[in-house]
Computed example of a mutant assay.
Amino acid sequence: MSSEPNYRSRHSARAQNRVALVTGAGRGIGREHALLLAALGTSVVVNDLGGSNEGTGSDVGPAQEVANEIVAAGGKAVANTDNIATWEGAKALVDQAISEFGGLDIVVNNAGILRDGFVASMDESQWDSVIAVHLKGHFAVLRHAAGYWKDQSKAGKSVNAAVINTASASGTFMPNAGQANYGAAKAGIAALTEVAALELERYGVRVNAIAPIARTRLTLATPGMGAMFAEEVPEGEFDAFSPANIAPIVAYLADEKCPLTGKVLAVQGGAVSLLQGWTSVETVEVDGPWLLDELPNQFDKWAEQA
């Protein structure tokens, strides 16, 4: 059920017996999430619009192929091609999971596109489309899932749900020129994760995010990075950029017994780092109001700091 075979034998985690939806699951990282969750006993709604890197077009093929692959291996899955960048599409996706499998326990927000451009030349459509798919898409799916879990909790039903969002190095610890739209969206997703974790804990929902680095059609298309990801790995050697490396972290975060919430984890190859948001590096103070003439003496030194 994976480009790296024997997922079930490689991972000893207990069967989930839960219901998950994974957006952008027709290819790359999202596909690996869906395959591993299914191998662990989770019923999966495989969402993928089937569009291009830039978000244009649609094709049922990618989502249906992954769903078919899961079913052929003995798992449970259905395909979904709703556009999660729309309020109605996100609601339809959540509703399908509930109607098809009787509930919803896991949301993996993974869908994304790229429309790179430098700030001085980026047009409105490049900005709007990337923000819509990444940031609005994450929120819209989360919003409708959260509404369901809130209603379940208010009705006295036990909820043990997990949300795994997808941030990026570009929006957290490794800003990338040419990706103002993508970086801003991914930074927003990291912040959304922290806020949602605070709000949804009362309903039995944990919310975390990953910032993955792996070989996908998006990273292969990223200027200055594609060649690195395209390098061939000799047979039998560990492929540090395989998207399959990311899936176990998501399965862990989705597990009922995982204690983490409000965390952002950077994942690449065999390394996982716990990220922390904006922190105070140094503080300068004066006894009274600031005077403009004093500021160079206090602030100019910061220009040399990384």
Rank of each mutant, 00 (worst) to 15 (best):
Y252K: 08
L253K: 02
A15Y: 11
F241D: 12
A271Q: 15
A132H: 07
G269W: 00
N208K: 06
R206K: 04
G61N: 14
K91N: 09
A15K: 12
P175Q: 05
A247E: 05
A169Q: 15
D116N: 03
P289D: 15
G61K: 14
N17S: 15
A221G: 03
Q179V: 03
K76P: 01
L260I: 08
V233W: 09
Q268K: 13
A180D: 04
A169H: 11
M122P: 02
G288A: 14
E124K: 12
A162F: 03
S9Y: 13
S129L: 09
L40W: 06
F118W: 04
A25S: 06
G269V: 02
V94I: 13
A92Q: 14
T222M: 09
A34Y: 00
V66W: 00
G171D: 00
N68D: 07
S170C: 09
M228C: 09
K150H: 12
D239A: 09
Y182F: 10
A155D: 10
F118S: 01
G26K: 04
S168G: 05
A227K: 15
Q305I: 14
G103V: 06
R10I: 14
E282N: 14
F118G: 03
L49F: 11
K257C: 12
N110R: 01
L37D: 04
S168H: 02
R215G: 04
A85V: 02
S168R: 09
V207D: 01
R27G: 12
A79Y: 01
L274E: 05
A184T: 14
I210D: 01
A92H: 13
G236C: 07
G24T: 10
R18V: 08
S3M: 12
G28F: 04
E232Y: 07
Q298P: 08
D123N: 03
R202E: 13
P175V: 02
D128V: 08
V159W: 11
V195L: 12
R206D: 01
E285F: 09
A145W: 00
G57R: 13
M122H: 00
E256M: 04
L220Y: 11
P175C: 06
K150W: 01
L104D: 03
P289E: 14
V281Q: 06
E237Y: 15
G171N: 01
E65C: 05
N110V: 07
L192C: 07
S170K: 12
S121C: 03
K257N: 12
Q96R: 14
A90Y: 03
L37T: 11
A167Q: 01
A190N: 10
A72K: 13
G178R: 00
E235L: 13
N181K: 02
Q16S: 13
Q16E: 11
A227F: 01
